[in-house]
Design a protein around this nucleic acid. Structure first.
Lengths: 212, 212
DNA sequence: TAGTTCTAGATTGTTCAACAACTTTGTTTC
DNA sequence: GAAACAAAGTTGTTGAACAATCTAGAACTA
């Protein structure tokens, strides 16, 4: 394999796509071979991903794909609530990201009957990405991107696509219509309910599979 | 030089301490020599710092110490408002970080008569660090740490210690007493005023020095 | 057998030297 | 003075080598 672009981005996408299971070790020798780069180049990419929280680096023990714990999930949703709700609450109704919210939601609703959970999940992520974009803050957006990637790992481990995605398309719809009809503050309250429900659902699935 | 600990941390501290001026280029050869490490090891550290936003890495052009623009300052304060106000607003009155707020504020007030701006600045940072700690969120704390480091670079460039720090010790006092007397919501409102005033002061100093 | 110690193997951490890829600088040319 | 070009310098990447550390299994003890 010798895809173009920065190695860290390629690796990042591989991890997000589930090519390497959460918790699995990433051997320098093996990955250097697989991606056809030298160990030194690979290690630079590892440092980037570690800083993004996608992999865990333990000195002299190598790097593994992050394997979020229950505590991590709680923290991830805490960060989501702070960032997403703040973005929505201070949003301008004419902000271009509102259209992105519409589009993402339309896509999710279109895929819903076919139960195409992969696409629905991606559309769901795009919807919340658009919410964060309302804040026009590169730094908050970056943090959200990292947190969302970690959450993606959580979904990979759970693998109950219907119960994780199906109820939330409707809730996203509620957030958007509330924003349009009743304004940012009411929408932010709705979003907070969404996030609380989603968090509970994920934590429940975690508990069900006896996860630490 | 051959200090202990991860190279990225040592470098980070050097930059925060102003050993390398914002915007200055960091030559691989020169720094590898200075810190007595190989270029490869240095490059790994560079990737970490770039991800933290402390240095800027442009392919084939090397890395430079970040040199925040006015747009960056605005974004930094946007992120601060979101994170700090959220942390304060949802805080429990008995949280241990409240004591850290007290201690940091006491330190600042003690150093105020002596006009020891360096210490006052550090105590100020500790105060806001404690505010963020109220949220008990590792991810938000990490983002705040990065943002605070960037802001430190801004202060290094401005170098008007009195006008940047003197008025804000009083305002920090107001935030804390409001928190204790009137609760988290009122304190968060007070903090928002603090941040708005601080932002304006920094932007003013920037404009005064004809900064891009 | 269960637990401990020790050894051998494997993996990561780091360095070095080399070269390719690219940028920058200075010169020539028009 | 502007554009084209050549030279020099810097970063990007590699491969090999070795040191430092961890891991797994064998040998040993109780």
């Amino acid at each position: 394999m010798n895809q173009k672009g920065p190695l860290a981005d390629v690796l990042r996408q591989s991890i997000i796509d589930g090519d390497f299971a959460p918790g699995s070790r990433l051997s320098e020798a093996a990955l250097a071979e697989q991606f056809d780069v030298s160990r030194n180049t690979l290690r630079e990419a590892f440092r980037v991903l570690a800083e993004q929280g996608l992999v865990e680096h333990i000195p002299h023990r190598g790097v593994s794909v992050a394997s979020p714990t229950i505590a991590d999930v709680i923290d991830i949703y805490r960060a989501r609530r702070v960032i997403e709700c703040a973005a929505l609450r201070q949003s301008e109704p004419e902000h271009p990201a509102v259209q992105r919210m519409r589009d993402a939601l339309a896509e999710a609703e279109e895929q819903l009957p076919q139960e195409n959970w992969r696409r629905i999940g991606s559309a769901n992520m795009a919807f919340h990405d658009a919410i964060v974009a309302l804040a026009d803050s590169a730094r908050l957006a970056r943090t959200y991107r990292d947190v969302a990637a970690e959450l993606r790992l959580v979904f990979l481990e759970i693998d109950e696509p219907r119960s994780l995605h199906e109820p939330y398309v409707r809730r996203n719809r509620a957030v958007l219509t509330t924003l349009l009809d009743k304004g940012p503050d009411a929408a932010a309250d709705e979003l907070e309910r969404y996030l609380t429900a989603s968090e509970r659902s994920v934590l429940g699935a975690f508990a069900r599979m006896g996860h630490a």
